[in-house]
Amino acid sequence: MAKITFIDHDGTKRDVEADNGLSVMEAAVNNMVPGIDADCGGACACATCHVYVDDAWMGKTGEISDMEETMLDFAEDRRENSRLSCQIKISDDLDGLVVTTPESQH
C-alpha cells in the first residue's frame, strides 16, 4: 500500500491510496485522476500516461526499459524526470510518491 500524490499542471493535488503490484497509471485511472488517459491499458504502447516524477523519488521508481525510453523520447515535453506511469510498479518503497501530469495530456 502506498499513498501517491498526483499534481496537475495547474497545481491541483490529489492523494490516492493504491495497492502494491499495481502500476502508478492504474492508481490514477482507478481514482479518476485527470490527465492520465492510458489508452493502451498499460502495454507501453501509447505514451498517454506520461508523468514527471518528483526529483526526490526518481531513484526509486525502477529501471526504464528500452521501449519506454524510446516512447518517452518522442512524447511531448520530455524532461529528465519523465516516466510512463504504466511502467512504475507500486510497492511500500513508493509510499509518499509525488508525480506531476503534463499539460499536454489535459
Partner: peptide
Amino acid sequence: INAAPEYMI
C-alpha cells in the same frame, strides 16, 4: 514493429 520512434513521429 518494435519501432516506437517511427510510430510516434
